[in-house]
């Protein structure tokens, strides 16, 4: 049983680390700001969750486990708000998204309902 929990937590920690690195690489590679938010989201959700779950299985006492669960809860609550506020600030600041297969720069729609669907592909 001990061995099983150890192996599982090792797997969780390793795959969490892998997802964190994938998110960081995506943030470096993706072409514009809006796509980068998606790559950063991989780190904020699955990477963080897997690492925290792995730590949860290694927790020596109940107090530590509760603290890890609280960190998990706070990250789940705050990371989408932070991501949305950055994205909305970029939108309000007229940062134009790249759309379509050709990654053409689409003008930011000003009026509600004026954007063309699907972009310029």
């Amino acid at each position: 049983m001990e061995l099983f929990a150890d192996t599982l937590s090792w797997l969780l920690l390793l795959s969490g680390g892998a997802f964190v690195i994938i998110g960081a690489v995506g943030t470096l590679r993706f072409p514009d700001f809006y796509t980068r938010t998606h790559a950063a989201g991989v780190t904020d959700t699955l990477g963080a969750d897997l690492v925290l779950l792995g730590m949860l299985l290694q927790a020596p006492d109940a107090m530590t486990a509760i603290k890890i669960l609280l960190i998990f809860f706070f990250l789940i609550m705050t990371s989408p708000v932070a991501t949305h506020s950055v994205a909305h600030a970029a939108y309000a600041g007229r940062e134009a998204p790249l759309t379509g297969k050709l990654l053409l720069r689409q003008n930011v729609p000003l009026a509600p309902g004026a954007e063309d669907e699907g972009g310029a592909s």
């Binding site: 989201g41 959700t45 989408p80 708000v81 949305h84 939108y91």
Partner: peptide
């Protein structure tokens, strides 16, 4: 809106 943002691949912009 937060669930949409939390799901990777979709971000609520407005």
């Amino acid at each position: 809106a937060n669930s949409v943002t939390l799901t990777p691949g979709t971000v609520t912009v407005d």
